[in-house]
Design a protein around this nucleic acid. Structure first.
Lengths: 334, 334
DNA sequence: TTGCAATTTGACAGCGCTGTCATTTGTCGC
DNA sequence: GCGACAAATGACAGCGCTGTCAAATTGCAA
């Protein structure tokens, strides 16, 4: 037979309610009592029944991670981080793929909340920036934490100084002597696309270089869009000597297209990406990129959300550090 | 205020228990009654409170997907498939990364089951083949479905005819005129490694070719192990003209190593993989591989598990079809 | 039409926990 | 040592559903 809270209470010689208090880490329990109860729990290998707790307290002890992101490695990292945080506080996590462009997007999230009743949500780009959804969440009073949202005010979660990272990457290319540097923009719905482009432009103007619109091509973060963008760049009258793609997948696409085009990387073309996903170590040559600590961001964002859910604080927006990862895909300009 | 089962009952003019019966799709409810109740549910946008259902019925309406797999794309596919099936039957899914080699592996799963109480488990390789775990699950009576387990007897889930797929891949290389074909084995704990090797050997013997142990190298399914294996192969006195890697990541590693070694793929070396993960379209040239329908396998396995959980049948082990995907990494032998 | 079994429906308790509020115990100043 | 107040603990109901079992209804043969 299952050990219930009542059994622990009897063993510890206190009332069930007191055990409940200890379980929920509530104030106003004497230290000696707490110790006694914890010992009894331990001895009996007690673990509370989630459904009973949920029913009585009207909480689900579950957070849902929402995503609409084609990159499985990014996703897995975020997910792993969120799980780490959840485990730490005995919460569980469910995952929910969504289509942010779908007409019924907000209704779908609404339905998820009504049916599954997560205590809070973890939002990943570009879901972080859907005004309709955010409005609905505020309306319903559903707590959430965002990872790399465009607007950080009044929002908790985790972010990175993306423009600065892009500037450092550009500084690296400029130091190698590159002057015709192309940029491949990511999916327009993602804040990252704008930030990385901004960093690109900043770096150019700092060096007193003109911004050449021909060298800036639209992509959508996918490998294929990187290939297409590179083909466009290779067809220019004056081709670039370096390409800074807004993520690794597109950078890998550029390397692929360079192979197709007979261009040697990095001898004739330097290529760099952003994110440091596994693909950056699986191209040949390996990609110079910005290491984005996705797992950590997932963990940090989830911890902030849990702070709120546990009523310990209001949570905050935490900045996490990036690092420039230099590999073989970049070299001095010819 | 939330709509409860009782409210629906009142609206439909029946007892709560009858609404419960309809909700749970139980027998012995008159057609007209059922219709009436369903209409009321619809009209009131009723959705049952999971925690109350769980508490009363001692089920969690949740399945857990267990994995210890380095490939995030494989995992995401499986996970998506499982989610599709769960959604269809109003179950939810949680994910759980594990280390199958950890000393306390079985205890960890045990704890998961005790604390989270999933109604059933989805096992992915190599967790599918851990005798200690399977014994414990049987002992505790926890239903599970396996994806590509080594032993299929008395197990439900989904699988593919892997040896046959490997034979077809080999037939393809042999038809291109290759005679010195190397094979890179996957992680020894995975059944897939054995099956793919078996297909490799079968194909050789069918063609009357000798099995050369020098041409068979151990890997572990990772990109890096593919690189290492390729380096070993390139150092042989008589190098192979084709490499059949047991998965795409290792095949990509071979292409990477070929670049490093100055070997042109596919002119001087044909390379093929297995699984058809995204990486197979992101190498240059793109990989010839076997398309493994992972998402479908996830869905099918979950559906079989749900059959059991819903008491509709005992479930079965379902075979799903593969396809040979020919791309640019293989060509006629020199 | 009646009697009997099979089918359909309902009454009621209770799953295991927490919220509310009452009660007991402890602390402190004087 | 006493009263006043705060801190700690407990009693009890009830969260929203389902299991059990009893009651009502139906179908069918005689």
């Amino acid at each position: 037979m299952r050990v219930r809270l009542e059994d622990v209470a009897r063993a510890a010689g206190v009332s069930p309610k007191t055990v409940s208090r200890v379980l929920n880490d509530e104030a106003n329990v004497r230290g000696t009592t707490r110790t006694k109860v914890l010992a009894a729990m331990q001895a009996m290998d007690y673990s509370p029944l989630l459904s009973a707790r949920s029913l009585a307290s009207n909480r689900s002890f579950m957070v849902a991670t929402l995503y609409d992101n084609p990159s499985s490695s990014y996703l897995t990292e975020i997910q792993t981080g969120v799980l780490e945080a959840c485990d730490q506080h005995h919460y569980s996590m469910m995952v929910r793929p969504l289509l942010v462009e779908a007409k019924d997007f907000v209704e779908r999230v609404d339905a998820l909340i009504s049916h599954r009743r997560p205590d809070g949500l973890i939002l990943t780009p570009p879901i972080t920036d859907h005004p309709g959804l955010l409005a609905r969440l505020h309306e319903r009073g559903v707590p959430y934490a965002s990872i790399s949202p465009i607007w950080r005010d009044d929002t908790i979660g985790a972010f990175m100084d993306e423009p600065q990272a892009a500037r450092e990457m550009m500084a690296n290319l400029l130091a190698l002597g590159h002057r015709r540097i192309a940029h491949i923009i990511g999916h327009h719905a993602h804040g990252a696309s704008g930030w990385r482009l901004a960093g690109y432009r900043d770096a150019l103007s700092t060096m007193g270089l003109a911004y050449d619109p021909d060298l800036v091509v639209e992509g959508d973060f996918s490998f294929d869009s990187g290939v297409a963008a590179a083909r466009k760049l290779f067809s220019l009258a004056r081709t670039p000597t370096a390409v800074f793609a807004a993520n690794d997948d597109m950078a890998a696409g550029v390397i692929w297209a360079a192979g197709e085009h007979g261009l040697s990387v990095p001898r004739e073309l330097s290529v760099c990406g952003f994110d440091d996903t596994p693909i950056s170590r699986q191209t040949w040559p390996r990609l110079t990129t910005i290491h984005q600590p996705s797992r950590k961001m997932g963990r940090v964002a989830a911890l902030q959300l849990l702070e709120v859910l546990r009523g310990h604080s209001d949570g905050r927006m935490v900045q996490v550090p990036f690092t420039l990862q230099t590999r073989e895909s970049t070299a001095a300009a010819i």
